[in-house]
């Protein structure tokens, strides 16, 4: 299992670890990890609870390049406590965004005419169930701080979210992901607020059967999120495909990237309320009813359709970007 850049590119994003994703999303040989395993910044809370620790606290942060842009990268590791946000994990995530923002201010102060394609950008690979319950106060605070950082980046640094890991992106981090400028997913990516298992536990199997994988993907999966307009780009499950998707977004001007936002303006809220009102009319029993409503008469066929064909034929909801 070499982590050579070339061999990483064709590897499944889903099956790669957080570090391989971070290295592969940047240009070849440009990724430098910051606060990596050598710094041994593991959780101070987990040992007291008898829980295993990790030297990077479940997140890889660093800097690299993407074309002419400096790229600030964070990549969560879903296999370590479900990619959950603890104190150290959260601090690393918050500070990589803060660094991007500070770099932007410094660069623009030095070179006010700095062309857009040379300005910094942030990319976050979300693979998380949200707050780490063992250190929940610190984790929640990190969520708030991260949203604050996104707000500070507004008008300056584009923040791109990537969701293609096994865990998906749920809990508080589902809100955080929604606050990014653009979201790129693969059909295996999953995005939501309350995760399927939690819904089942709280509301019962009749409400939501978390063991029904097809149902889980119809409600939280990349294809559904693309139709709903909650995700901007849908790509194949390889590191190269995510990298290309990222390149597509980063080639845009800030104004164009800003228009990819799914939420965050009065017009977007109004459009969503209109869609919601129309959906209440049809009273959907399943995601497929919504897909049909969006203009896909053969909704059932979308599930197993190859991504190329899907992207060519699918109709998205009207308020979708």
């Amino acid at each position: 299992m070499s982590s050579d850049w070339e061999t990483l590119q064709n590897r499944s994003f889903l099956e790669s670890n957080a570090r391989a994703r971070a290295i592969g999303l940047a240009d070849p040989g440009t990724f430098t990890e910051l606060a990596g395993p050598r710094c041994r910044l593991s959780s101070p809370h987990l040992p007291l609870l008898g829980e295993a620790v990790e030297f990077d606290d479940g997140i890889v942060t660093g800097v690299g390049r993407h074309g002419s842009r400096p790229l600030f990268i964070a990549s969560q590791e879903g296999r370590f406590v479900g990619g959950s946000v603890g104190e150290v994990h959260g601090a690393k995530l918050v500070n990589i965004v803060r660094m991007a923002h500070q770099a932007y201010d410094r660069m623009l102060a030095e070179t006010p005419e700095l062309p857009e394609e040379r300005r910094p950008a942030v990319v976050i690979s979300f693979e998380t169930g949200g707050v780490r319950l063992h250190e929940a106060n610190a984790g929640l605070l990190a969520h708030a701080e991260l949203m604050d950082q996104f707000q500070d980046c507004k008008g300056k640094v584009p923040v791109i979210g990537i969701i293609g890991g096994r865990v998906g992106c749920f809990g508080g981090m589902g809100f955080v992901a929604a606050a990014t400028d653009a979201i790129i997913m693969s059909p295996f990516g999953r995005l939501g607020l309350t995760g399927p298992e939690v819904i089942e536990e709280e509301m019962g199997k009749d409400e939501f059967d978390a063991s029904d994988r097809a149902l889980v993907y119809r409600v939280t999966g990349g294809k559904h999120k693309y139709i709903m307009g909650d995700c901007n780009l849908l790509v194949e499950d390889t590191i190269a495909a995510f990298r290309q998707g990222l390149g597509k977004v980063l080639a845009m001007s800030y104004a164009e990237i800003d228009r990819l936002r799914r939420i965050g303006s009065l017009d977007k809220v109004k459009a969503q309320l209109r869609t919601l009102a129309a959906l209440v009319e049809i009273a959907p029993r399943d995601s497929r009813d919504v897909w049909t409503f969006a203009g896909n008469p053969a909704a059932e066929t979308l599930v197993d359709m190859k991504l190329d064909d899907f992207l060519r034929t699918v109709k998205r909801l009207e308020n979708a970007s």
Partner: peptide, 16 residues
């Protein structure tokens, strides 16, 4: 002089 390998998943380990 330095290497790091592995992910602390369930039933797994990392090493420096």
């Amino acid at each position: 002089d330095f290497l790091h390998y592995g992910v602390v998943g369930s039933g797994d380990m990392e090493v420096i």
